[in-house]
């Protein structure tokens, strides 16, 4: 069987630690199979760097199945690379051709400081979730399945919002570095379901307050976030969060 291989030039952002100014380094990579994933190509390059006694390139990854939200590379001007509704780990080298130059940068936002090379600290998202992205339940015997009726349309919309993997591509793509697509997905997911109703108002208020505290920008409805989201989260969720937040803010809460 014919094996499709290619030689590429990588321009990768290298930064020793959060205090280091950092800069781009150029690496030629050879004999890359078209069947490799983008991260596997980085594995090959890193093995070479280790053999040469150099520091391998740090990058985030975990499941490599497109569902954990860890991988976070800004490739040739687009978060997660050229494919739509896709994560970097699921981007395959057949997207490129022999001789291509690929520029790889970390997510850029003040709220996502670079820790090393392509790894950024996305702890801000965890703190937003801690501020209200949950439901409080009393422990006890398990509730019967389907004991709480939920409309099909709402269940579907909640499920679509829950698909958000919190990777931060929305922040990376937004000209304002706004995290509103992420926050709105998390708020919508719970606000649409009866289980989320009791804490609906405080959730919207607290999560947005934490988002502002973390230093993300304000949304101007440009739509860039929706276009690059690997899970296709819709900006309708942002409008829903706006309504939830203003409604809650004008209430007595």
């Amino acid at each position: 069987m014919e094996q499709n291989t290619m030689n590429l030039t990588l321009k990768v952002w290298r930064q020793k630690n959060s205090g280091d100014p950092g800069g781009f380094a150029t690496y030629p990579v050879k004999n890359i199979s078209a069947e490799m994933s983008f991260l596997e190509m980085f594995d090959v390059l890193n093995e070479e760097l280790i053999r040469e006694g150099k520091d391998p390139i740090a990058f985030d990854h975990d499941c490599r199945e497109g569902i954990c939200g860890m991988c976070s590379m800004y490739i040739n001007g687009r978060p997660h690379g050229p494919w739509e509704k896709n994560t970097v780990c699921q981007l395959h080298m057949r997207a490129y051709k022999d001789g291509d130059t690929i520029v790889v940068e970390p997510w850029r936002a003040k709220s996502f400081p670079v820790l090393k090379d392509l790894v950024v600290d996305r702890g801000a998202f965890d703190r937003i979730i801690q501020a209200g992205g949950y439901i409080s339940v009393n422990t006890g015997s398990p509730v019967d399945a389907n004991a709480v009726p939920v409309e099909k349309e709402k269940a579907d919309a909640a499920f679509a919002a829950a698909a958000c993997i919190g990777c931060g591509a929305c922040v990376a793509a937004c000209k304002n570095s706004s995290a509103l697509l992420f926050v709105s997905a998390k708020v919508s997911h719970l606000a649409l379901l009866p289980q989320g109703a009791p804490e609906r108002r405080s959730r919207a208020l607290n999560m947005v307050a934490q988002m502002d505290k973390e230093g993300f920008g304000a949304c101007t409805n440009t739509g860039a976030c929706e276009a690059v989201c690997p899970k296709g989260i819709s900006i309708e969720n942002i409008a829903r969060l706006n309504r939830e937040f203003i409604g809650a803010g004008m209430s007595g809460e």
């Binding site: 687009r78 850029r108 936002a109 706004s178 920008g217 101007t220």
Partner: peptide, 27 residues
Amino acid sequence: LELQNRSKRGKGYKVPMGSEGSNWYRK
């Protein structure tokens, strides 16, 4: 808002995002 939003990125990208999913006038 414009000034605050512009200050949120910090270091910018080498390759800019372009207008995917958006339009120049929206930005």
